[in-house]
Amino acid sequence: MAETKIRPYSFEPYQPKEGEEYMSPEQLEHFRKILIDWKTELMKEVDRTLHHMQDDAANFPDPTDRATQESEFSLELRTRDRERKLIKKIDEALERIETGDYGYCETCGVEIGLRRLEARPTATQCIDCKTLDELREKQQGG
């Protein structure tokens, strides 16, 4: 079973030109390509899983074999569910590129930063706001 890719596969880190404005058309195109390539890879994984499950869906007479297969299918479906949610986040990031909101923190409005976006192209918060949110979650949850 293939593992979910939690970040896009290979790309060249963007090297801004001297004096280049943040989220220039070239930068936006760089991130659009990363997001589209990542989504394409995830969609291929979803298709592979579907075909794998259809091909392997055997009715085992042995209850242990049947339970093992059901357990494997359940794990694959959970993985695909995470990928489906990730595809939704990718689509939302592509929408933010179109609306001109991509690359800016939805909480405080500052630049998220090229390297953070390359590490997590679906990021919607700067590292400071994200860290504060995580601290609040920990305090409320525990």
Results as ranks from 00 to 15, higher is better:
125 Q>E: 13
110 V>Y: 04
126 C>I: 09
127 I>H: 09
62 D>L: 10
56 D>E: 15
114 L>F: 11
115 R>V: 14
59 N>Q: 13
73 F>E: 14
121 P>L: 15
94 L>E: 00
131 T>V: 06
107 T>K: 04
109 G>N: 11
85 K>N: 11
44 K>D: 08
112 I>K: 03
93 A>W: 02
52 H>S: 09
101 D>H: 11
121 P>E: 14
67 A>W: 02
43 M>E: 11
96 R>P: 00
102 Y>Q: 08
83 E>I: 12
93 A>D: 00
83 E>K: 08
68 T>Y: 05
113 G>R: 12
96 R>S: 01
56 D>C: 10
52 H>A: 03
118 E>A: 12
104 Y>P: 08
124 T>H: 07
82 R>F: 02
78 R>E: 02
118 E>D: 07
85 K>P: 01
72 E>H: 09
90 I>P: 01
116 R>M: 06
104 Y>R: 15
67 A>E: 09
58 A>M: 08
69 Q>L: 15
44 K>T: 10
108 C>H: 02
47 D>R: 13
104 Y>S: 10
111 E>R: 14
45 E>K: 12
95 E>G: 14
90 I>L: 06
97 I>T: 04
75 L>T: 13
65 D>M: 14
51 H>E: 13
46 V>L: 14
79 T>H: 03
105 C>T: 06
62 D>G: 04
109 G>W: 12
69 Q>D: 13
67 A>Q: 07
109 G>C: 14
73 F>K: 09
61 P>G: 07
54 Q>K: 12
92 E>W: 02
51 H>Y: 05
60 F>L: 05
55 D>W: 09
57 A>D: 08
74 S>A: 15
46 V>Q: 15
79 T>Q: 11
71 S>R: 11
68 T>P: 00
81 D>I: 01
78 R>L: 08
122 T>L: 03
65 D>K: 07
62 D>P: 03
88 K>T: 08
98 E>W: 00
124 T>I: 10
112 I>T: 06
117 L>A: 07
98 E>V: 10
